[in-house]
Design a protein around this nucleic acid. Structure first.
Lengths: 329, 329
DNA sequence: TTGAAAGCGGTACCAG
DNA sequence: CTGGTACCGCTTTCAA
């Protein structure tokens, strides 16, 4: 690995001059600049980011903290973030917290130790004290915070849309699945749906769940149909759960969407490949990631607090686990 | 942020001493050590990784390069890698190459610029020259290389298993989907299946595809049934494609697995949630990630070339898109 | 327009 | 057992 000194020596100039052409600031004679550039090329030199970070006390790294990349919703967020930060010349330090406070703290510490310029966090931690004395721009993604800028989808509206969709399409005994209590977006959806169901002329019941894992989704699906065999409409807490319910319903020989309508949440890529394909409330995950990254970068550039909450719209994706709505209603 | 000098001054010792207790090497009086430790605690000091990296010329970062985290197979690999490197005290710098050589090179450059101690790459790039003059341990994941240690699943055997499964269960007009030509594991599967089909008493045809994307999977599914309407067994190039085909088959009113058997590849989490649930050849993705990380860490520790190829076994996961096999056969 | 030199925050060698 | 100090590779005054 060539260093700036090698380049300087080869080009017959000082390291200061090389640094100047590297960073394109300060005065450099046009002749000199050319010679330096040539030498850089010839030596295949590329500056040591670590040394740079040390002096500047900031790197070109951004920390991204997720609950679990294995959950199909998060890769999309992550890609949005990555694509956007890359454009601005940053790279990602990635961590999965698994909802464990210790891991989360450990990652935050590594982020700081490595001089990241900002952090994007999509975790569900309750104790926000983890983030209180971070002296860096932080944006929360897929959840809101009173203390930090955040980017999220309109969960309440999503819940409402889901409920309305089922009601409009004739379900009268609806089961609403309530996601894990500590997952904020899940609660927003739940509240939205609850509100809408409450003011409609339908029977409904609530089924509480405690996590989003694949295996457990199956368990709840079974639980759902033993507890509420008569249900004719299900609002799932997300697409995984929705697909698990669809699976179980088909196994029980129910006809979808005639006997039972199902609506999911998120619109993960695979939801269009279920059969019947899953109707769902779409969250623009990729865009959310991008927005979060944009916001963070703005904060980094301006070096000032931009206390912003960016709410992205959700939308109903009508596929085949819901009936066609009566147009003349 | 407190520095080592602050600690030294507070504790009334030299920075050298603080460094010694920090790294637990060299002699430090038990009394002194205690005092330093207390001060560290009190000042909430944690060492600056960047400064450390600069001096040591190596960080505690590992670079992970994937084709696309959005493809459900890769998050599993990534988690395996992450969990294992974390245990050894390393963190991940993540990059998605999107099969673009430029991006791949850019990431490799950032990895080097940031002093990563090793690289794990799961890309499909053909020109291995990208990796030729890297002066770092590199392990390839989910693909083999003559020039570097690698960790991968037994794709040929997987292909064979898939073909045999269908044949044993009575399919006689099999369609074999050939994945993208530049994706090595896809070709291994294909070759394995091809070999097995060739020596069996069945008719078969091959359908070539060019990518793994969700949208295109649907297109091929349609293409499949127009070109080969009479097929009674499909070997998909992966689970996404398998699920897309299942979807299309159901749409066309085919009964699964009676009229048509389908077998996928990978065993991504969602494949058990399709209906009927997808039979598939399982690759132990998480374990593959872990093995790759272990191997890399061994290379880092020993600072020597360990030229190893680790092949992990695949297995047939019988679910409901294949018939029950005749036990007395 | 250019160069010398003082750091950035650690580590490790050499004295004592 | 402890301290002084020369780096690691780059950026940025300050002088020339």
């Amino acid at each position: 690995m060539a260093t700036i000194r090698d380049v300087a020596k080869e080009a017959g100039v000082s390291v200061a001059t090389v640094s100047r052409v590297l960073n394109d600031n300060g005065y450099v004679g046009v002749e000199t600049r050319k010679r330096v550039l040539e030498t850089i090329e010839r030596l295949n030199y590329s500056p040591n980011e670590v040394a740079r970070s040390l002096y500047k006390r900031k790197s070109r790294l951004i920390g991204l903290l997720l609950p679990d990349i294995t959950n199909p919703f998060f890769p999309q967020l992550a890609r949005g973030v990555e694509d956007e930060v890359n454009q601005a010349g940053f790279r990602l330090l990635l961590g999965n917290s698994d909802e464990e406070a210790t891991k989360e703290l450990d990652y935050i510490q590594t982020f700081e130790q490595n001089h990241v310029v900002g952090i994007i966090s999509a975790t569900n931690n309750t104790d926000r004290e983890n983030y209180e004395n971070i002296d860096l721009p932080v944006v929360f993604l897929d959840r809101t915070s009173k203390h930090h800028p955040s980017v999220f989808a309109d969960g309440r509206e999503g819940g409402r849309l889901a409920a309305r969709a089922l009601i409009d399409r004739g379900s009268t005994k609806i089961t609403l699945i309530k996601g894990p209590a500590h997952v904020q977006p899940a609660q927003d959806r739940f509240q939205g749906a609850l509100a809408e169901l409450s003011k409609a002329a339908v029977d409904f019941s609530v089924l509480g769940t405690t996590s989003y894992a694949f295996e457990e989704a199956k368990t709840w699906a079974e639980e759902l149909f033993t507890k509420h065999p008569e249900t004719d409409g299900v609002i799932a807490s997300n697409d995984i759960v929705g697909i698990a319910i669809l699976h179980e319903a088909l196994r029980l020989g129910k006809s979808i969407p005639d006997e039972l309508q199902i609506i999911g949440f998120d619109d993960i890529p695979l939801s269009s490949l279920s059969y019947p394909s899953l109707s769902t409330i779409r969250q623009p995950a990729y865009e959310m990631g991008k927005e979060a990254a944009k916001l963070l970068i703005r904060m980094i550039k301006k070096e000032q607090e931009i206390d912003q909450m960016i709410q992205l719209p959700v939308s109903l994706i009508e596929r085949n686990t819901t009936r066609k709505v009566d147009k003349d209603e």
